[in-house]
Amino acid sequence: MSVALEQHAEALSARFGDTVERVPSRCSELTFEVSSGALREVCAALRDEPEWRYEQLVDVAGVDYLDYGRDEWNTEDATSTGFSRGRSASVRPESYAHYGTESRVGPREGRRFAAVYHLLSVSGNRRLRLRAWCEPGEPPMLDSVVDVWSSANWFEREAFDLYGIVFRGHPDLRRLLTDYGFVGHPFRKDFPLIGNVEVRYDPAKGRVVYEPVSIEPRVLVPRVIREDNRYAPELKDPKRHG
């Protein structure tokens, strides 16, 4: 990470104190986690104060962390002779915690939904990523930043539609991408990939009808998590190799 970016990060940490927390990044990108209560203030300051000047909100992405670090290669069910290449518990203990009964309460302390904001400073030629965890409970809630950046309008509507995140203070929080009368939030990890309903034209009724899906869900390639050390930064460190 460049020196200028590092200084920028330190200045940000100093300015916003404990409302933001720096997250380490693999690829020299700046990421901060913002406490959900302070989100609007921090965003307004990031746009207006002359040392940051993040004029643009490039993207808002909802994320559902329900299955994070969880793979579909269930080695516990395999026979003693099969699937020896599957991952074992020692590989990645913190993600393995998702597996059994204690699943879904892992390193994220039960927090499930987050919104990820990508900011761009045109005058400073910088990017910044903010992640705000939604307040737990159903529906997950966050403050809207539409009055800071108008571009947040549709991005927040999209996150509401696909993840069910309710943005407090949004002027027009309607569904955006899904069908009229759609039920559920399709990008949540517990929403099946094949969906819940299918449509067809019913010649007898003379209209389009909705029915429960008839296809079977299937996984062609299971999710596998292998600790991939080849690209780990500590191995790339020349001092390590002597």
Binding site: V58, D59, R70, R92, V116, H118, V224, I225
Partner: peptide, 20 residues
Amino acid sequence: EFGIYLLSDGANKPYRVKCR
């Protein structure tokens, strides 16, 4: 600007892909 936000948990499939 066409952007891809990629979130990986170390698996062979992306955890989240967001197209901008």
